[in-house]
């Protein structure tokens, strides 16, 4: 790779400083005993203790994680099957139509998706709360999983399927012994993407959550509206660290399986 020139380096540094400064500013003051986001008085972990002592907040944290894991798991299963379905369609135009329908769901604004889910749930009478949040998270994660898995299917040598059948494999054997092992990196990538999308979703969740059920992003928003509390800083710090860990985990999983394509950016 070409070495970066000096102005390019400076530009990159400035961009990343601007992008990361607010987060580090936030985390920096989460250690401030002064209780405000100016005048750093002395180092304290009090705000972090406050987070872990606030049982309501912990319940919300657990809710968020459960929603993320469940929606990630279910959307990965449905999305993978969907990708295999799209892959096995021989008619090119039908395949393209399905893929476009899938992509539209990814690019359409969260507000629209959230509002439409709210209307749907109230119409068919689903109680707003855990179920509605889970269902909507599964729904917006499926297209992402499809998009992560499909390239792996397309890059697979179609002779592998013939070869497996040639060696006596039934359709079921082909699926479990050849296709799924081959696309496993894509499935993992899809799962991690779904996980992060679910963890940090605010807009959709905000619409479909009801009384007594909340996720972290919605809760932080409502605390922030009431007034400044460094508990939010501490909580944000924890979420940031967890996110970084997930990214590192994703990196190792994909590197181990030689998945070179990387993830897609947020749209």
């Amino acid at each position: 790779m070409k070495k970066l020139s000096m102005p390019a380096k400076i530009y990159l540094i400035i961009v990343f400083v601007i992008l990361y400064a607010p987060i580090f500013y936030l985390i920096y003051y989460s250690f401030n005993s002064g209780g405000s986001m100016h005048d750093f008085e002395s180092f304290t972990l009090e705000h972090y203790r406050a987070v872990f002592e606030d049982s309501r907040l912990l319940v919300i944290l657990i809710n968020t994680v459960i929603i993320a894991l469940l929606s990630g798991l279910i959307s990965t299963i449905i999305g993978t099957l969907g990708a295999i379905g799209i892959f096995s369609i021989k008619r090119r135009n039908i395949r393209n139509i399905l893929l476009s329908l899938n992509n539209i769901l990814i690019v359409s604004p969260d507000v629209v998706i959230g509002a439409s889910f709210l209307i749907l749930f109230t119409m068919i009478g689903v109680k707003l709360g855990f179920a509605s949040v889970l269902i909507s998270h599964i729904a917006f994660s499926i297209p992402i999983v499809v998009l992560m898995v499909l390239p792996k299917l397309l890059e697979m040598n179609p002779n592998l399927i013939d070869a497996a059948q040639d060696l006596g494999a039934t359709r079921r054997d082909v699926l479990y012994r050849v296709i799924i092992p081959y696309i496993k990196p894509g499935i993992f990538a899809g799962f991690f993407m779904a996980l992060t999308y679910s963890l940090d979703d605010f807009a959709v969740t905000f619409f479909v959550t009801g009384n007594g059920f909340s996720t972290l992003s919605v809760e932080i928003y409502s605390i922030a509206r009431v007034g400044i509390s460094l508990t939010i800083n501490a909580l944000s710090g924890i979420i940031f660290v967890v996110t970084v860990l997930i990214v590192i985990g994703y990196y190792f999983v994909t590197r181990r399986t030689k998945f070179a394509n990387g993830g897609i950016g947020r749209l």
């Binding site: 040598n157 002779n159 592998l160 013939d162 070869a163 497996a164 092992p181 081959y182 496993k184």
Partner: peptide, 9 residues
């Protein structure tokens, strides 16, 4: 097969 079609996994 021409490209051997060995299972890479």
């Amino acid at each position: 097969f021409q490209d051997y079609a060995l299972f890479p996994h």
